[in-house]
Nucleic acid binder design. Structure first.
Length: 464
RNA sequence: GGUGCGAUAGCAAAGCGGUUAUGCCGUGGAUUGCAAAUCCACUUAGCCCAGUUCGACUCUGGGUCGCACCUCCA
């Protein structure tokens, strides 16, 4: 039985889908005006893991991850670049897909773009207005009247009074209450036609929060199972989504809210505003994508994850141990996902129990290491197959071990032909018992980052 | 100031009221022409102070420290 830590309840709860065997899940995705950083990588990988585990558990999953392609930062960046909004967002949507693909993230079932759902957003705003929860202010913006919604703050655990107390100085606005947030921003003279839509409240564009409410209900319905995102979205974004969706539809919006922890650098949140972020593509120049995925999954999704080269190096060595076990097994495990898992075996039971306990991937990965030990000890085919299939559930260990071991190089290095030639030379030296020469070659290659391993099957090599 | 989360060995990171987490690093041994890989054995824990208990890293209370949200942010 799967248990999920539900932010709404502040505890782990048994997961019961609304429709038996079907799960509807929505995750807040990227605002596409720049390259994704490691924080984005974590959301993508974490919810990809959730998606895979739900499917492996027998659920039919409908997974939606939105793309925000209209927003202040996008408008600003497009103006700076002197390019159209569309050209800018398309470029970064493509870049995001490249990064996600590299990290082994499966495509969600739907990736709705905000700009394609403006009519649905307007309809929802009208509904809120009918329900007395929205009003148009003097400046033309349509705002949500937060105090009119019962239960505002139930997700983030904030009371209206607490929010009041911590209020920051607000820029000039015609909101009736400082806590109100904007649903529809009136168009400004200076803005391009591209960011203006017609509406009964005049030309304008949607506020940030309304897109998720509108797209989620359009694709998944007014009430669905899981909604996820980074911990920083808990407030105000998700709180506002609840206010919008429940205020418009008069029914529960989401049953389980999941929030992943931050990626940190030197114990501080990695973020655009702090400027301490690393883009995914930057990191992938140095580290294998699977190492990055493994690094993310080796921590629990709700814990903070500290990024550093030392930690990535550690993850690389650990993952190498798993691949080494696969390589050395005879017969080698066949590659490719899709093998059926025997969920009755002891290791698989442990793996499943861990995953069912709020997606405890560190524990599940520990099972993988125990299996690797099993493989190394008695070359049991079942253990090898299990190692590969269970890891496959996490999107790991699906490559040919040789390719992983030969490819995990830091920078450049010798080409294969050269390495093979040196190996041949060393074998020849060994045949004539010229061990000095053989050792010289080994040392020479080691200095070039190549480790030679002699075994009954011959000499193999890998990069350090 | 308000709210929430966390504190585990040299590093990273889990479970668990009593019995080996796991990976890296380190030590000893096996194996190897020498190595690497692997195997076996082992060393390093639970912020502080009280309390509950036969027994607490695990529960309760207090303290200290760290982080996050309250403003765009995954």
């Amino acid at each position: 039985m799967l248990k999920i830590y539900n932010t709404l309840a502040r505890e782990k709860q048994e997961f019961k889908p609304i429709d038996a065997n079907k799960v509807r899940m929505y995750v807040c995705g990227m605002t596409v005006y720049d390259y994704c950083h490691l924080g984005h990588a974590r959301v993508m990988v974490v919810f990809d893991m959730v998606y895979r585990w739900l499917k492996a558990s027998g659920f039919e999953v409908n997974y939606v991850r939105n793309i925000t392609d209209i927003d202040d930062k996008i408008i600003k960046r497009a103006a700076e670049n002197k390019e159209s909004i569309h050209a800018l967002t398309q470029r970064f949507v493509d870049a995001m897909h490249e990064d996600a693909d590299a990290l082994g993230v499966q495509r969600p079932d739907h990736e709705p773009l905000a700009t394609k759902f403006v009519p649905q957003m307007l309809e929802m705003i009208a509904q809120l207005e009918n329900n007395g929860l929205a009003y148009q202010a003097a400046d033309g913006d349509v705002n949500y009247a937060v105090r009119k919604f019962q239960g505002y703050g139930k997700l983030s655990g904030k009371s209206l009074e607490d929010l009041r107390a911590g209020e920051r100085v607000e820029v000039a606005s015609d909101k009736k209450d400082p806590l109100d947030f904007v649903l529809w921003k009136h168009a400004k003279e200076s803005e391009a036609e591209e960011v203006k839509w017609d509406s009964k409240w005049g030309k304008g564009r949607p506020g940030w929060h309304i897109e998720c409410s509108a797209m989620a209900s359009e694709i998944l319905g007014n009430h669905f199972d899981i909604h996820g995102g980074g911990a920083d979205l808990q407030f105000p974004h998700h709180e506002n989504e609840i206010a919008q969706s429940e205020g418009a539809h008069n029914c529960q919006f989401v049953n389980y809210w999941m929030h992943n922890g931050f990626v940190r650098v030197d114990n501080e949140k990695m973020s655009k505003s702090l400027g301490n972020f690393f883009t995914i593509r930057e990191v992938l120049k140095k580290y294998d994508a699977e190492v990055v995925r493994f690094f993310i999954l080796r921590a629990h999704y709700r814990s903070p994850l500290n990024y550093s080269d030392a930690h990535l190096d550690d993850a690389k060595v650990a993952l190498t141990r798993l691949y080494t076990a696969l390589k050395s097994s005879h017969p080698p495990a066949e590659s490719g996902e899709g093998s059926v898992v025997d969920w009755n075996s002891p290791h698989a039971i442990r793996f499943k129990d861990s995953m069912d306990d709020d997606y405890n991937t560190p524990e599940a990965i520990a099972v993988l290491f125990d299996l690797a030990n099993e493989v190394n000890r008695n070359q049991a085919v079942e253990a090898t197959t299990q190692l590969r299939t269970l890891a496959g559930v996490l999107g790991l260990l699906q490559r040919d071990p040789q390719i992983f071991l030969k490819g995990v190089t830091s920078t450049g290095g010798l080409d294969e032909a050269t390495i093979n030639a040196r190996i041949e030379a060393r074998i020849a030296a060994k045949k004539t018992k010229n061990f000095a020469e053989a050792d010289f070659i080994r040392k020479e290659l080691l200095e070039a980052g190549i480790v030679l391993e002699d075994s009954a099957q011959g000499t193999t090599w890998r990069r350090t």
